[in-house]
Amino acid sequence: MELFTASVFAFTIPAVIFAGISKGGFGSGVAFASASILALVLEPGVALGLMLPLLMLIDVSSLPAYWRKWDWSAARVLLIGGIPGTILGALFYAWANPDAIRLIIGLVALLFVAWQAAQKVGLIRLGAARFGEKTGFVAGLVLGFTSFVSHAGGPAAAVYLLGQGLSKTTYQATTVLIFWAVNLFKSGFYAGMGIFTRETLMLDLALAPFAILGTWLGIKAHHKVNERVFFAITYVALALTGMKLIWDALT
């Protein structure tokens, strides 16, 4: 598949900037929208392989701004579960066909939007009580699996971390640390399974400045931008993208 085309750049540049803004300033919960959007115009494996090095670059670019502001005890629990979850994700990816991956990405997108809506209307309440380590381990398993097959580990991390009563900045710093580690771990599987290609890595080099730009914008926006507006737009985009991916997978 030809990646260096105007239509590919028209989708990838905004998606990469958005991923940087999300991961740099608003946690990693909605950054997977970028991979979901790219899966509309690229094969799922290509979209995943293209995004991972850029997500890793965003992680590294974000770390200095949040250095040692994280909650290590919460991060440790999720990372312990994330290791076997990543391995399960790799096994599933090796078995699944592209339409199965599209279906998973679409379902995760819609479930995430539904979960957020349930929180808004009070059906789900987080933060009132701290979750235990068993819940954190299960969240880590889901984080590792969904992160591998769709770069969508953020929602699972958010469920556990929001139940820890963390401050906004501590929450953000903890997600940056977690996904730096998880993405580094799964990159070895991506390389060994051929998900990275010469073409995706060359395009990553061209898109790297936009990833850094998005990260810088996200860090600045962390203290200034209205989160409700940012997330409202994201949820609409995720719902539409998820429905389209499910339709494509089933038809």
Rank of each mutant, 00 (worst) to 15 (best):
K134F: 10
A152M: 06
G106P: 02
P98L: 00
G144F: 02
P155I: 04
A100L: 13
F112A: 03
I80H: 08
V121E: 08
D71F: 05
Y171L: 15
I105S: 04
F145V: 12
G82S: 10
L107A: 13
A114M: 10
D99F: 04
L107W: 11
G85Q: 07
Y160P: 08
S147P: 06
I105N: 00
A94K: 14
V142S: 05
G132D: 10
V108N: 04
T86G: 05
G154T: 02
F145L: 15
G165V: 00
V113C: 01
V77N: 07
G122D: 08
Q116P: 00
L123P: 05
I87R: 12
V159S: 05
A75M: 09
I80C: 12
L161W: 03
F137K: 02
G85S: 02
A152G: 09
I80N: 08
Y171C: 08
V121Y: 13
T135G: 12
A158I: 00
I124K: 07
Q119P: 01
L78V: 00
F148Y: 15
A90V: 11
A90R: 14
L78W: 04
K168W: 10
V159F: 15
E133G: 06
F112T: 14
Q116G: 12
G163D: 07
G127R: 01
G154N: 01
T135K: 12
A100R: 09
V138L: 11
G85R: 06
R130E: 15
S147L: 01
F112H: 15
L103E: 07
T86D: 00
G136N: 05
N97A: 11
F112P: 01
T170Q: 14
A114E: 03
V138E: 03
A114T: 09
T169V: 15
R102T: 05
A158Y: 03
